[in-house]
Simulated scan of single mutants.
Amino acid sequence: MSSSSEECERKYKGVRRRKWGKWVSEIRVPGTQERLWLGSYATAEAAAVAHDVAFYCLRGNSSPQNLNFQALQLPPGVYMGLSPRSVQRAASDAGLATDAHFVLHRPTS
């Protein structure tokens, strides 16, 4: 694997690339060894947004330096205290919306 592809794969926290090109995201649940699967996405940015939403839901806005996109705007307190399944749903919805945005605004050649 070349250093440029490794660098691309490590660009975002909680995101990795599958051999076949899909980007996946997961996060650890605080206080446990459990990992929460956040989904598979077409773009690294979508997987990173999913990770950021899950991070915010699980840990709040206390550590913005741990986000991939520090300017991510989420309403304060709205996502706090959700069940792991609800966190997965919120993260997946945000990731899929980001993927859709990138697909719709992809330059055509």
Rank of each mutant, 00 (worst) to 15 (best):
S2C: 08
S4W: 10
S5Y: 07
E6L: 07
E6D: 14
E6F: 10
E7S: 14
E7I: 06
E7A: 13
C8I: 07
E9T: 14
R10P: 07
R10S: 15
R10N: 15
K11V: 02
Y12G: 11
Y12Q: 04
K13A: 10
G14I: 05
V15W: 00
R16E: 12
R16P: 07
K19D: 15
K19Y: 11
K19V: 08
W20T: 05
G21F: 11
G21Y: 09
G21H: 08
K22F: 08
W23Y: 11
W23P: 00
V24P: 03
E26Q: 09
I27E: 12
I27H: 11
I27V: 14
R28Q: 12
R28D: 06
R28P: 00
V29L: 14
V29M: 11
P30G: 15
G31A: 13
T32M: 15
T32H: 10
Q33C: 09
Q33P: 03
E34R: 13
W37L: 07
S40Y: 02
S40A: 10
Y41T: 01
A42R: 05
A42T: 01
A42I: 00
T43K: 06
T43V: 04
A44T: 01
A44N: 07
A46M: 00
A47G: 10
V49R: 10
V49N: 03
A50E: 02
A50R: 01
A50G: 06
H51N: 12
H51E: 05
V53K: 01
V53L: 05
A54R: 01
A54G: 13
F55R: 14
F55D: 15
C57F: 01
L58P: 07
L58F: 05
R59Y: 02
R59G: 04
R59L: 10
N61L: 03
N61A: 12
N61P: 03
S62W: 06
S62D: 08
S63Y: 11
Q65W: 06
Q65M: 04
Q65A: 15
L67N: 09
Q70H: 08
Q70T: 08
Q70R: 13
A71S: 13
A71R: 12
L72K: 00
L72E: 05
L74F: 04
P75R: 14
P76E: 14
P76F: 12
V78F: 13
Y79H: 12
M80C: 09
M80F: 07
G81W: 02
G81R: 04
G81C: 09
L82V: 09
S83H: 04
S83R: 12
P84R: 06
R85Q: 13
R85I: 01
S86L: 13
V87K: 13
V87T: 13
V87W: 07
Q88S: 08
Q88L: 03
Q88T: 02
R89E: 10
A90S: 14
A91I: 00
S92C: 12
S92N: 07
D93L: 05
D93V: 00
D93Y: 03
A94Q: 11
G95K: 07
G95N: 09
G95D: 04
A97V: 00
D99I: 00
D99N: 11
A100Q: 06
A100Y: 04
A100G: 02
F102M: 05
F102D: 05
F102K: 02
P107I: 06
T108H: 11
T108M: 06
T108V: 15
T108Y: 09
S109P: 15
S109M: 09
S109Q: 11
